[in-house]
Amino acid sequence: MRADEMPAFKDLLTDAMAYYGKDCSAFTLTVWWGALQGCELEQVATALQRHAMDPERGQFAPKVADLVRVLQGTSTDRAALAWGKVHEAMSAVGAYRDVVFDDPAIHAVVEDLGGWPKVCRTDTKELSYLQHRFQEAHRAYTARGQFEYQRRLAGDRSPDYEYTRNGLPAPRPALVGEPERAIAVIQNGNAAGKTLISTLPEQAMGLLANTTLQEARA
Rank of each mutant, 00 (worst) to 15 (best):
M1P: 01
R2G: 02
R2S: 13
R2H: 14
E5D: 15
M6R: 15
P7Y: 13
A8V: 15
F9G: 06
T14M: 09
A16S: 15
A18L: 12
Y19T: 15
Y19E: 15
Y20G: 06
Y20R: 04
K22D: 10
C24V: 08
A26I: 06
T28E: 14
L29G: 10
L29K: 08
T30M: 04
V31H: 05
V31L: 07
G34K: 01
G34M: 01
A35Q: 01
A35N: 01
A35W: 02
L36E: 03
L36H: 06
C39V: 10
C39W: 06
E40Y: 09
E42V: 10
Q43S: 12
V44Y: 02
A45N: 03
T46H: 07
A47V: 00
H51D: 03
A52N: 03
D54T: 01
D54C: 00
E56M: 09
G58S: 05
G58L: 06
K63P: 01
D66E: 11
R69G: 10
Q72P: 03
G73Q: 13
G73V: 03
G73M: 11
T74W: 08
T74N: 12
S75C: 02
R78K: 09
R78S: 11
A80Q: 14
A80T: 08
L81F: 07
A82W: 08
G84C: 11
K85A: 09
V86T: 02
V86S: 05
V86E: 05
H87K: 15
E88R: 11
E88Y: 07
A89R: 00
M90C: 12
S91D: 09
S91A: 07
S91R: 15
A92T: 08
A92N: 05
A92V: 10
V93H: 13
V93K: 04
A95H: 13
A95D: 12
A95C: 03
Y96K: 11
R97Y: 12
R97N: 08
R97F: 05
F101A: 10
D103M: 07
P104D: 00
A105T: 09
I106T: 09
V109R: 05
V110C: 09
E111S: 14
G114K: 10
G114S: 12
G115E: 02
P117C: 11
P117Q: 08
K118Q: 10
V119G: 11
C120F: 03
T122L: 10
D123G: 13
T124R: 14
T124S: 13
T124E: 13
Y129R: 14
L130I: 04
A137P: 07
A140I: 13
Y141T: 01
Y141C: 03
T142S: 14
R144I: 01
F147K: 07
L153I: 00
G155H: 11
G155F: 01
G155L: 00
D160H: 02
E162D: 09
Y163H: 03
T164Y: 13
R165H: 09
L168R: 15
A170E: 14
R172K: 11
P173I: 09
P173W: 00
E180N: 07
E180H: 02
A182D: 01
I183D: 09
A184Y: 02
V185H: 00
I186Q: 12
N188C: 04
G189V: 00
G193T: 04
T195M: 08
I197Y: 02
E202C: 02
G206V: 08
G206W: 03
L208G: 00
A209Q: 07
N210R: 12
T211A: 08
T212E: 11
T212K: 01
L213D: 10
L213R: 13
A216H: 03
R217T: 14
A218L: 11
